[in-house]
């Protein structure tokens, strides 16, 4: 991997076996398996500081691609390399424990995101302030509204000091003032040397944030290039 390349995928394919119900031991011995290729032969290199947009219809393999980049799942064939800490703003509420307080959740989720204990401590006040949950920090998470949980999730990821940031439709999370705040935060990341992968159906924002866009369709790269061009083609295609 060259020095300035932080993510590199070489002929990555991902096969899923469809389970219509939870597999049981007996079933797995006798039933034939239904296969499904979510990604086929993807080659991709992302440079440090690059801002890449990803578009494509539902079921195109966007989520699978992100999961492979974050290392949450592994490809069936091909190789993946990613350098640096990755934070994903995809499933913001994942990892929260309803019985624990906001503070305890910040601590555990910070560790899950790869932060060191000290880092969490140092950033604790900023996380709480940004999420606007200071009053409720000692309350169990199941008393939080969904908006509060989303804000906390966003705030945690944002302050985990990632090298690579993966953003989904989170800008639409929370109320208007928080949307503005999170958008500003993302723009701040854009001005820094952070690598950003932005998956969205909101093509205007995507064009604004990312110079380049990748168009996925049925597990394959359909187009890759300047956002303006790719987005235009995508719009005409549909």
């Amino acid at each position: 991997m060259k020095n300035n390349i932080v993510i590199s995928l070489k002929s990555v394919s991902k096969k899923y076996i469809l389970h219509h119900e939870k597999p049981t031991l007996v079933e797995s011995l006798f039933k034939t398996k239904e296969e499904f290729w979510a990604l086929k032969n993807i080659n991709l290199e992302i440079k440090k500081g690059q801002k890449l947009g990803i578009i494509g219809p539902n079921g195109a393999g966007k989520s699978t691609l992100l999961k492979i980049i974050t290392g949450i799942t592994v490809p069936t064939s091909g190789s993946v390399k990613a350098k640096g800490r990755i934070a994903s703003l995809i499933d913001l509420e994942a990892g929260f424990e309803p019985e624990l307080t906001g503070e305890e959740n910040i601590y555990i989720n910070g560790l899950l995101l790869g932060m060191a204990k000290k880092e969490i401590k140092n950033n604790f006040n900023r996380i709480v302030k940004f999420a606007e949950i200071k009053k409720f920090i000692d309350s169990p998470l199941h008393t939080y509204s969904s908006g509060m949980k989303l804000r906390l999730g966003f705030s945690l990821a944002a302050f985990s000091n990632p090298d690579i940031l993966i953003i989904d439709e989170v800008i639409t999370a929370g109320d208007e003032s928080f949307q503005r705040k999170s958008y500003e935060k993302i723009q701040e990341f854009c001005h820094q040397e952070k690598t950003i992968i932005f998956v969205s159906h909101i093509l205007d924002i995507l064009k604004k944030l990312c110079p380049q866009t990748l168009w996925l369709d049925r597990g394959k790269i359909k187009e890759f290039g300047l956002s303006k061009k790719v987005v235009n083609k995508y719009l005409h295609f549909n």
Binding site: D91, A94, G95, L112, L113, G114
Partner: peptide, 9 residues
């Protein structure tokens, strides 16, 4: 499973 979907720990 929700923890596992969160990150690659």
């Amino acid at each position: 499973r929700s923890l596992i979907q969160k990150s690659n720990f």
